[in-house]
């Protein structure tokens, strides 16, 4: 698409990414968790980060979400170089993160979860209280706008299915005016149909003008909705592509480790012969 450097004018002569990572690295003690990773997130686009377990996806997400600080490289929000202090800092800059397993507090009602951390209040002094009616109604209408019809916003959110919970969390981020939505493996624990539903809401968030970072290890899901793809392997960037420069098959092959997969298939073929005797 456009050149990554938008030095000249921040005004839209060149479209400036909402969030940009440039050659970012992160170390935990003497362990290189992430090195040389570059990523652009544009408004109305979905940038996918693909990688196997241990590839550094969680580290990357934690840097963007403000949970960890990067140790090297540049992290730009709206073209301005920054280091996020904490998750709240990230939220204030419009970066909302939806985590795979800790998106919500299961025992709390849907409406309490929806507003958690940003509760509206009414009244003053000692009578300052939650605006419960507003919270309930807003939750219902915000979910409805995303296409989720939830008649009882009072039910504990834990009683919803995994897909519905992800959708509520996405709707919450959209409602609170996030500019960048970071999704950590939103389809990892879901069935085929549920995954489809969640992908639809991700597309809805993109159509609403958000920049989306989709972290996943499923190239099929990524290719369905993604505009850009960044491949991570053992903490380093193994590839960066736009949608028109790569096919699904190629993406899948790179993601699965190409030659490694072929090797594995040979190994498995051999294993069928003598039986499951020799293990790892």
């Amino acid at each position: 698409m456009t050149a990554p450097q938008a030095q000249g004018g921040p005004q839209d002569t060149v479209r400036q990414p909402l969030v940009e990572l440039d050659d970012v690295a992160k170390f935990y003690g003497n362990i290189k968790a992430l090195e040389g990773v570059s990523l652009e997130v544009h408004a109305g686009e979905i940038s996918c980060v693909l990688g196997d377990n241990g590839a550094g996806k969680s580290t990357l997400i934690k840097i963007i979400a403000g949970l960890h600080r990067h140790d090297a490289g540049r992290f730009l929000v709206d073209g301005e170089e920054t280091t996020l202090a904490n998750p709240r800092d990230a939220l204030e800059r419009g970066i909302a993160t939806v985590y795979q397993d800790l998106a919500v507090v299961p025992l709390m009602p849907v409406w309490r979860n929806f507003f958690l951390g940003s509760e509206p209040t009414t009244g003053a002094g000692p009578f300052k209280r939650l605006d419960v009616r507003l919270m309930r109604e807003t939750t219902r209408s915000a979910l409805l706008r995303m296409g989720i019809d939830l008649r009882d916003v009072d039910q504990p959110i834990g009683t919803l299915s995994g897909g519905e919970r992800q959708c509520v969390a996405i709707a919450r981020a959209v409602h609170f005016g996030a500019k960048v939505l970071v999704l950590d493996e939103p389809t990892a624990a879901l069935g085929v149909k549920q995954s489809g539903v969640v992908l639809k809401y991700i597309a809805a968030a993109r159509d609403a003008g958000l920049g989306v970072v989709l972290i996943t290890h499923n190239p099929h899901h990524a290719y369905l909705v993604g505009d850009r793809f960044v491949l991570l392997k053992r903490g380093v960037m193994a590839g960066s592509h736009t949608k028109d420069s790569i096919t699904l098959d190629e993406l899948t092959r790179q993601m699965a480790g190409g030659s490694e997969l072929e090797e594995l298939s040979h190994e498995l073929e051999r294993a069928t012969g003598p039986g499951p005797a020799d293990t790892v």
Partner: peptide, 20 residues
């Protein structure tokens, strides 16, 4: 709000921290 936070830190402290 404090009450909402009480439920949240008990029911899922990490999720609560993540939303501020």
């Amino acid at each position: 709000r404090f009450g909402n936070w009480i439920f949240a830190v008990g029911g899922g402290a990490d999720a609560a921290r993540a939303v501020g």
